[in-house]
Simulated scan of single mutants.
Amino acid sequence: MTVTGGGRFAFYAKRYSRKKASIRLRVLEPMSALRDAGLDVRRYPKLKGLDGYDAVIISKAFGRGAMKATQAAQAAGCGLIFDICDNRFANNRVKGSTHHAMRTNQFLSQADLVTVPTEKMGDLLVSQAPEIAGRVRVVPDMLEDISTLSGLRLSMIERFRLRRLRAFLAAHPGALHVVWFGNNMAGISGVGQLDEAVAQLRQFAVRHPITLTIINNKPAVYRQASPNWGIPSFFMPWSLVSFPAALKLHRAAIIPVSRNDYTAGKSINRPATAIMAGLGVIADSIESYEELRPFIALDDWQDGLSRYAFEWEAEQVRLARAREHLDQHYGRRRVAERWTEVLEEIRTREFRQ
């Protein structure tokens, strides 16, 4: 895809660290894909100002830097897009922060357009900030291509941790090796909310051995929760470099979802990451996961675990079709096309017509 419309755009983020999934999937990778497509896309120019820029995209930033970028865009007459990948209002409610909720509302209300990864996320935001109705645009998360990380050099500690994980899995030959990966948010998602999923694993373990690996950065939460699980488990600290290798040592990912306003608008990101790495997926359904129902196990834990334990070869056809589906709808080309449509809309001020 080559773009001929022109335009100059800047992405603003508090930090541009690849260690954060939202930055990889909604800033760095889209910027790279848009450049490949012929757009002039840069990081926010802190020192040189915004003269000549058509729009600034502020990505999931709510602090003083984002406020200054907003003011600079308005002063320069740039279009302003606020990109948000989580239901910040639900996050603020959990933390009891009315101040942050007001700030979120302030940022959204000043934006010419608000971009979100799913329609449901847009609906949730509009319910809290009705003034943005008509200004919300869906731009999917880009697929997490962990193959691009496989060539990065492992540190000594990362190699040590991978050896320990391999030894743990080897100590349970013939078991179905499943993995959970993600962040913790107290009372909403994370290791502390795995009890129902682990009960499903424990039920399955009566007829077939199973192991569970946890990949995240909260070992204390794992140590507190895991003694009551009753199945062999292992904690693997998450790192950008070791994650691809650790993930691929497993056959299936489990993705239990506590249903609330925070998780309801989540993107397809996590099951897609597992599928693209060659794993099967057993998950609770939310709206964005429904399109994957033909390819993975949704809301059917025992059957899904059986499929991946006993019918692995037969599942390869489904998983291959899932990868094709994901590439078509969330691959680099498609997401670049969608970002281009939104940027062209704001460049030509079509949203004001």
Rank of each mutant, 00 (worst) to 15 (best):
K14P: 00
R202E: 00
D54G: 05
E345D: 10
R26M: 13
L149P: 00
M1A: 15
K218H: 13
L319S: 07
I214E: 05
I286C: 01
E337V: 12
A225C: 11
D83Y: 03
I58K: 07
L47T: 12
S22N: 08
H325S: 14
P140R: 06
G265P: 01
A274E: 05
H325L: 14
P227K: 01
L343Y: 02
S233F: 05
A314F: 10
S155F: 05
N228W: 01
R64M: 12
L279E: 03
G278I: 01
T2C: 11
I255H: 08
A175D: 00
E344L: 11
E337H: 13
L149D: 12
G77S: 09
S189F: 09
F204W: 07
V136M: 07
L149H: 07
K46Y: 11
A10P: 02
A37N: 07
N92K: 09
L80R: 04
W301G: 10
N269G: 15
A322R: 06
V281M: 06
K95T: 07
T118Q: 11
T104I: 01
V335N: 06
V281H: 08
I84K: 02
S147E: 15
H250M: 08
T98D: 14
A336L: 08
D195Y: 01
W238L: 11
A72F: 01
Q74R: 14
W312C: 03
L343E: 04
M276N: 12
V317Q: 14
E324W: 10
R163G: 10
D83C: 04
G174R: 02
A199P: 00
V257P: 02
R349L: 13
M236R: 01
G49W: 09
A297D: 15
I132Q: 06
F9C: 03
E341P: 04
D40I: 05
L143R: 04
I296L: 13
P244C: 12
A55V: 09
Q71H: 06
A252Q: 03
G280W: 03
